[in-house]
């Protein structure tokens, strides 16, 4: 069975899973998958794994617990796919996020993009991770030597055009 293009769940993530998901994606929309074999037009696949680090802001991290508002997180991923479809029409996206307890070294997010040329695949992949950090309703609870803390990053607002432009600027840098 082909893995879904967009997913959030407790199963471990790995590069082969996300690569298989994006390899099976066809169609004109970044989030569309028909499960058919690739048509040969794409010359690039870029993959990204985000891993749990053993240090953060001077703290020795023991593990993270990820929490999400799952149905809304999936909608955020769909929105990101749609934004990528608008900005890089030939790029396709697969994005899986893990929740629950993750040990140091485990992957919390896996992203794969493909496109006819490498530039768009690299840019779309970077854009996807930047947008996840901006608008996906997901939270890290960090457990470190001596305590625990909820990590609070961006105030999520998908309509904030300045944030979106910043993600695009980073993606195309």
């Amino acid at each position: 069975m082909t893995p879904p293009l967009l997913a959030i769940g407790r199963d471990p993530l790995a590069l082969d899973g996300i690569a298989a998901a994006v390899a099976a994606s066809t169609g004109t929309d970044a989030s569309t998958s028909s499960g058919q074999a690739p048509d040969g037009r794409d010359g690039a696949v870029v993959t990204f794994l985000g891993l749990v680090r053993n240090h953060n802001l001077g703290r020795s991290v023991r593990y993270l617990e990820y929490e999400a508002y799952e149905p809304m997180a999936l909608k955020a991923f769909e929105r990101i796919a749609s934004e990528i479809g608008a900005r890089w029409p030939s790029a396709r996206l697969a994005l899986h996020h893990r929740i629950g307890k993750l040990l140091v070294g485990e992957a919390s997010i896996a992203i794969a993009t493909r496109s006819p040329h490498r530039g768009d695949a690299y840019a779309a992949c970077r854009y996807a991770i930047e947008r996840v950090k901006q608008i996906a309703p997901i939270w890290k609870h960090e457990f470190f030597d001596g305590g625990e803390v909820w990590i609070e990053g961006a105030t999520a607002n998908p309509d904030d055009q300045q944030a979106r432009a910043e993600a695009e600027r980073i993606a195309c840098a």
Binding site: H97, I109, I129, K133, A136, I138, E152
Partner: peptide, 10 residues
């Protein structure tokens, strides 16, 4: 209704 503190996914 959901209330969301600043997010930190990824």
């Amino acid at each position: 209704i959901a209330f969301l503190p600043p997010v930190s996914g990824g």
